[in-house]
Write a protein that binds this DNA or RNA. Structure first.
Lengths: 226, 226
DNA sequence: GTCTATATTCCGATAGAC
DNA sequence: GTCTATCGGAATATAGAC
């Protein structure tokens, strides 16, 4: 037969696959995102993933080489989209608008993709063994580049002087908190109200206040852009 | 013998124990904090804990009823001290000083007790199965109480009007980020510089700016405290 | 391609000597 | 109290029928 060889024992998708194969692979990956984000890598079992995907355990292993291959695939798919909001922060746009829009997009991602956020958080909490290269490579370069953009905005007086990288950290921390610590937030706030409207207002206000250029040369950490 | 019955199969410390027993229990708990905070409950093994504590696996199980008993004990010991900074925020003190001091103490805890922070984060990320009661009980009451204090400060014009609970969330998020996501921070910042001095300055500045009472009734989210 | 049955490894916990 | 040896369950992965 002119067909491609068996998919078994492959962790990457074969060059050609039917729509059905693709759909099953995606069903497995989606189920895996559910299970891994809730239980971590070690806490997850192939049985959970298979059941949630509506397949048998050996059938899952027909499409992926093993548990770790599934995990790696899920993680790398997340990373593709995770950095998008930061990438699309435009050096040519209005500084305040760009930064506030970045905060807004990050918070929206926490709302729309909490599983992805939690999986990412778990991975980093445990020392990021699977994505070390990406963090110290692509992510580092991206943050360096955007930090220079922010520093330029500060120097030009478009925004208040701030430490650019710690500003980025604070944006990551505050927005992802609403996905990663949602359990705690719900228990503190009480019933199942949606915390995101208030969070959006609060964070927009907080970063707007932080970044508003000082009206006078009075109370900045540095007296003015040098 | 008039001695107390065997410690085996007990998860709570017996009424009387020698200094040696106490020291071994503490060695186990410290090793367990190491291992649980790095690998999570499921990822941790008794072998890791025993090795790090310098004991054999059965010997560990002589002092604790099982893996879960160790985990529960570690968690409950953390919780005793974890809420301390928030508790000691004084309604009678100067509002700006109290809040900035709270931020500073929380950041110091992230620096001094990163293992505790990470273990707590992992537990909440996975739905807080062990501490659900504490979160919806003690923590919720504490936050309610302190949120009222903060709201009072806002209403009195001592600090700018802010959503009190989301202010608390943002303090938790930004400070714990430096413990929980330390791997990412190190990779983004590059070499092993200590990020905490810059973080302390940045966060103090950010919250000071957020909370500074507006000089005029111009640019708050609400025009005035109602 | 998908299943049942099973091989195999790992880990929590116990038995029993000392 | 502490150890070696081991049980028993769980989970990854494979074999092989269909």
């Amino acid at each position: 037969m002119p067909r491609a060889p068996s998919n078994a024992a492959q962790d990457k998708p074969p060059l050609r696959q039917t729509r059905i194969q693709k759909a099953k692979r995606e069903a497995i990956l989606d189920a895996a995102l559910d299970v891994f984000s809730q239980h971590g890598f070690r806490g997850a079992t192939l049985d959970m993933i298979a059941t949630r995907a509506g397949l048998s355990k050996p059938n899952v292993l027909y499409y992926f080489a093993g548990k770790e291959a599934i995990y790696t695939q899920v993680l790398s798919q997340i990373l593709e989209t995770w950095l998008d909001p930061l990438i699309s922060m435009d050096a040519e746009g209005d500084p305040m608008q760009e930064l506030r829009a970045y905060v807004g997009r990050k918070l929206e991602m926490a709302r729309e993709f909490p599983r992805e956020s939690r999986l990412f958080a778990t991975e980093i909490l445990q020392g990021a063994p699977e994505i070390e290269g990406l963090l110290s490579g692509d992510l580092r370069r991206l943050v360096d580049e955007k930090a220079k953009v922010i520093a330029g905005w500060s120097a030009a007086g478009k925004i208040a002087p701030v430490h650019p990288k710690h500003l980025i950290f604070s944006i990551w921390a505050t927005t992802q908190h609403y996905a990663d610590f949602r359990t705690q937030i719900d228990m503190v706030l009480g019933t199942g109200e949606d915390p995101f409207p208030d969070a959006a207002q609060f964070l927009d206000h907080m970063f707007a206040r932080l970044l508003a250029p000082a009206p006078e040369g009075a109370s900045g950490p540095a007296s003015g852009p040098s």
